[in-house]
Design a binder for these strands. Structure first.
Lengths: 230, 230
DNA sequence: GTCTATATGAAGATAGAC
DNA sequence: GTCTATCTTCATATAGAC
C-alpha cells in the first residue's frame, strides 16, 4: 500500500513537494480534532472541511488514527516553535521572569493551546507517544528557556537556587505561573481570560518566586505596598 | 415519560429505595466512562458491565448523555467527600502542610482521580456544568481546607500572607504541590508515581511555600542541608 | 421493570471509473 | 490522485412480550 507516511507529514513544513491536497486534509483534520477530540470527530467532517472526497483522505493516510497522529504531531511542532521563539529584553531577573511569564501564559491560555491540551490529555491512553511528544514540545521546552535565565540570574547573584537546584526552581516558577489559570481554563472552556487577569497571575508568580529564591535585597523588583516580611 | 431524574441519582447514596438495577447501571457507566471517555464509551459496554439488558438502561436514563451526567456528578460527590475527609494531626504549619499535601497528592494522583480529570477536561465543552461541578468538588474544596489552616498559622504568627492574602497563598501552595505531578500523570497515563516521588513533591512545595511566606525563623520546619538563604 | 429482537441511522473504509 | 457511489459494521434507541 502506497501512502504518505508519518515522517513525510512531520516534514510538511519543509517539504514543498508534499501533495497539496494532503496538506489541506492535514490542516482540516487538525481543526476538527482540536474541536471535537478524536472519537467525536468524523472523517466526514474532515473531508468536508478540507473540500476533498473521502477517498482522497484515505489516499494519504492509512486510517483515522494515522491522520490523528500526523495532525497532532504537526501541531506539536508549531507549539514548540512558538515557545522557543519567546524572546525578552535583557534586564534584571524580575523583569525577565515577568516578560517570560507573560509570553508563556499568553500562549498556553490561548484557545488553540487549550484545545490542544484537552485532546492530548483525553487521548493519552490510546496514543501514549503523543503525550510524550507534547511533553517535550510544551513543558520541557519552556523549562529549558526558564532554566537558562535562572542560571544567568544565579551567576549574577540575583537569586539563590541552592535549596532546590535550577531545574526544580524553574519547574516551580512554571507551576506558580500556570497553576490557577490552566485549571480554570481547562475546566471552564466558555470562560475568557482577560489581559488584566494574566497580569495578575504573572505578578503573583514572579513575586512569590522571588520571595522564595530571591536575594535579601529584592522583593520582586518592585516595592511591595503591603508590609514586607519581618 | 417516567424516568429517574438527576436529583434521584445524585441522592443515590442516601436513597435506598432507588432501584437496584439503576445503581448497577450507574456504577457500570462510571467505570466505562472513566476508562473510555464519553464518545468512545458505548451503551453496549455499559449494559454488559452492568449485567442488564439495553432496554433496562434506557428505562432509567433518558439517553447516553443523561447517563454520563449522572455518573460524573455522582463521582464528583465521592471525590469531594474524600477531599473534605482529609484530616491531620495538629502541629506547626510545616507539619500541617506536609500532611495535607501528602493526603491531597495521594488522592489527586490516584488512577481514579486522573481518569476522572481526563474525562472532565475532555468533555467540558460539551457538558459545561460538569466542569463547574468538578471545580467545586476538587480545587475549591481543597482550597477551603488549606485556607483554614493558613488562617490559623497566620494568627499564630507562623506565616505572613499579607503580600497576597490567604486565598491566593492557598492557591499558590496548591499549585506548587500538584504542578509537576499532575502534568506528568495527565500526559503519561502509563507512568506510575512512587511514594518516594510524592514525598519529594510535598517536601519541595512545603519548603518553597515557607521560604516565600514563612516567618524569619522557620525554614520549612526542618534544617536545610544545603546552605540557607542569606 | 425487564427482557429479546430489531429498527434506524451514522461512521469508517473501499471499489472502480476517470 | 481524485472522484462518486457503496459496502459493512456498529451504536443509539425503541417495540412489544412477559
Amino acid at each position: 500500500m502506497r501512502m504518505t507516511n508519518n515522517i513525510d507529514v512531520v516534514r510538511m513544513e519543509t517539504s514543498p513537494e508534499l501533495n497539496d491536497k494532503a496538506l489541506k486534509v492535514l490542516r482540516a483534520a487538525t481543526g476538527v480534532f482540536l474541536t471535537h477530540g478524536f472519537s467525536a470527530a468524523t472523517t466526514d467532517m474532515i473531508q468536508q472541511a478540507a473540500g476533498v472526497s473521502k477517498a482522497t483522505v484515505y489516499a494519504h493516510f492509512a486510517n483515522k488514527e494515522a491522520l490523528f497522529v500526523a495532525a497532532i504531531e504537526a501541531q506539536c511542532e508549531k507549539f514548540e516553535a512558538s515557545v522557543r521563539a519567546i524572546r525578552f529584553e535583557p534586564g534584571n531577573i524580575a523583569k525577565v521572569l515577568r516578560e517570560l511569564g507573560h509570553a508563556y501564559l499568553n500562549i498556553v491560555l490561548s484557545e488553540t493551546a487549550l484545545a490542544f491540551m484537552r485532546v492530548i490529555i483525553a487521548e493519552a491512553s490510546r496514543f501514549p507517544q503523543l503525550g510524550s511528544t507534547f511533553y517535550q514540545a510544551g513543558p520541557k521546552a519552556i523549562l529549558s528557556v526558564v532554566s537558562e535565565q535562572l542560571a544567568h540570574a544565579a551567576d549574577a547573584g540575583e537569586i539563590d537556587v541552592r535549596a532546590t537546584g535550577i531545574e526544580t526552581a524553574a519547574m516551580l516558577f512554571f507551576s506558580l505561573l500556570r497553576g490557577e489559570g490552566q485549571l480554570i481554563c481547562l475546566m471552564h472552556p466558555e470562560s475568557r481570560v482577560s489581559p488584566v487577569q494574566i497580569d495578575r497571575w504573572v505578578e503573583t508568580a514572579v513575586q512569590t518566586f522571588l520571595r522564595a529564591f530571591g536575594g535579601s535585597e529584592t522583593s520582586g523588583g518592585r516595592v511591595l505596598h503591603t508590609a514586607p516580611l519581618n
